[in-house]
Design a protein around this nucleic acid. Sequence first.
DNA 1: AAGTAATATGTATCTGAAACACATTAAATA
DNA 2: TATTTAATGTGTTTCAGATACATATTACTT
Lengths: 227, 227
Amino acid sequence: MPTTKLKFKSAASEKRNRQDYFNIAVSVDCVILGYENKELKVLLIESDLEEFNGLHSLLGDLVDPHEDLDAASYRVLKDRTGLDDVYLEQVQSFGNIQRHPSGRVVTTAYYSLVDIRNHRLQLSHKAVSWHTVSEIQKLAFDHKEILDTCLKRLREQVMERPIIFNLLPPKFSLRELQEVYEAILGVGLDRRNFRKKIMLKDWMTDLKEMETDVPHRPGRLYKVGAR
Amino acid sequence: MPTTKLKFKSAASEKRNRQDYFNIAVSVDCVILGYENKELKVLLIESDLEEFNGLHSLLGDLVDPHEDLDAASYRVLKDRTGLDDVYLEQVQSFGNIQRHPSGRVVTTAYYSLVDIRNHRLQLSHKAVSWHTVSEIQKLAFDHKEILDTCLKRLREQVMERPIIFNLLPPKFSLRELQEVYEAILGVGLDRRNFRKKIMLKDWMTDLKEMETDVPHRPGRLYKVGAR
DNA sequence: AAGTAATATGTATCTGAAACACATTAAATA
DNA sequence: TATTTAATGTGTTTCAGATACATATTACTT
């Protein structure tokens, strides 16, 4: 705990005392995304606030004064999913006065991509469950806006950086990969053009293995990573 | 001031009481950018903390519990420059434990583009001044990292959205516009290709006027906005 | 053995980006 | 007044990436 006074010299800070400035709580909210049955899913919890009775909300928590902001989002993810080696990226902060009915809370949103079929994934609580992103109409707090903002950022980044593989199992076919892209981008893609484009990026390695248990001609399997 | 208890149910929040969670201060920091003499400039203030003696820092302030996060950044900008109709965009939040030597402060960074030659622009304080971005080596706090992050975002957006015009006076030539792009992107651009590309965007209107007071053939003047 | 459904691959076309050259204009200079 | 200078203003060619599109192949199913 700091004992030194914070020094800020604006008009606003001069007319208020130090205690006032610790009347804002800081939280993180995680948009934890998964992919299953050709649909993008997000992990939600039933809101426990009366104001939001029946609505779901993102997974979040207040930030401990002794932990880094990023660390708080990793903690939420670890607590809720059991996973600690996942992709997590800060998107934006939301700080309207009235966004939390119980008090002033400024939250920072992160999005994360996890493999739903990963056997280490264990949900922390019965009230936590996967929801199809495209079917979500309304969420508690400003969480629908946060979700939409994170999805927009994800769509912008998904062709720029090799992050999508976090949604897939270690071995995957090009068909599966394309279906994930289609679920995220919300458009159909030409298979031949998709393959050329994705192959040029050098994000995957051919495992020289074939799919099994598919009711049709099996495709090649790939793993993430060059070489 | 909320009287209801904040309800959060994680392991971390259960083992701490409410007061602990108001021990994080929230601030905003503004990367206020201008353009002059073919160089990108940023508005800095001399740090008043002993730890950062001699170093400059970005313009920021603590957020008032009764103001929106975005409103706080507008207030900082208004207080420091006198301008209230400027482009301002949130970039990212920075929340490492030790980023502020006097206590725990989570800050949200914004960048802003202003016309240095705007006559309404008035700096609030003698210690506030413009610095050439490319010459900045070190800043107080983590402000160098914040600056770099904002510049990166600016470079990503400058060809996507018509924001660069905020750096220019109401009437400008294509040469001036290109020079601003070159200053931001840090590269030289081909004049003919630049013109074609920028014209296709429909961001500007031909004023049917010519430059005056230039020691060479005068160029056409444009203003921002289609039609 | 035939049918089905998916994999695998190649080519022609279009669009935007990049490279590049010359005529024009106004001011400065001789 | 003619010449020089330095910038404006425009067009074409080339290249790369994106898009549109068709046929042969393979494994399973019937």
